[in-house]
């Protein structure tokens, strides 16, 4: 399984974990981003994700490279969904393995925080009475 994937198919969380597990790893940190049912008190009907896939993969690779320079991690995978998602669906999975937990926790946190700032993926929140591209307007 590839380490960095943008996909319109369901992400297999267990497979992500299995992929980063290595004999020398003492800890695996996993972040799972899921679709929540409300935003600012409004019921969310669905989310629509789109990506500039070739650039998104470049930016994800940069995140992995930065992490490998900063922390002694073993393996990192980042899988992100595109398409239409509903409450409870998995939008993103990040899994990081390392010998010790500090590196795994910190690298995983860095990966999701940076992804949200730099990777060209967009989500539209669709409510019962309208829709909004998240973060588009001040």
């Amino acid at each position: 399984m590839s380490d960095l994937i943008i996909t319109n198919e369901t992400i297999d969380v267990q497979q992500c974990i299995d992929t980063v597990m290595t004999p020398e790893s003492g800890g695996i940190d996993v972040f799972i981003g899921t679709v929540r049912d409300t935003t600012k008190g409004k019921k969310v009907v669905r989310l629509e994700f789109e990506a500039y896939e070739s650039m998104a993969l470049n930016e994800l690779q940069k995140i992995v490279d930065e992490i490998k320079n900063k922390w002694p991690v073993h393996k990192i995978i980042i899988h992100h969904r595109t398409g239409v998602l509903y409450t409870g669906d998995v939008a993103v999975v990040i899994a990081v393995s390392a010998a010790h937990r500090d590196a795994a926790f910190e690298a995983c946190r860095y990966a999701i925080d940076t992804l949200k700032q730099t990777v060209p993926i967009w989500k539209k929140e669709v409510f019962e009475d309208g829709e909004v591209w998240v973060a588009a307007h001040p």
Binding site: Y52, S54, M55, W122, A136
Partner: peptide, 29 residues
């Protein structure tokens, strides 16, 4: 603006044949 899949600087030159894209505020995750 992204040029050839990389965020571009304001002073960067655009050449014929470059892949140019408009990148609004991202919101993945």
């Amino acid at each position: 603006i992204a040029v050839n899949g990389v965020y571009a600087q304001p002073e960067q030159v655009i050449n014929a044949g470059d892949e140019v894209a408009i990148i609004p505020p991202v919101s993945g995750g």
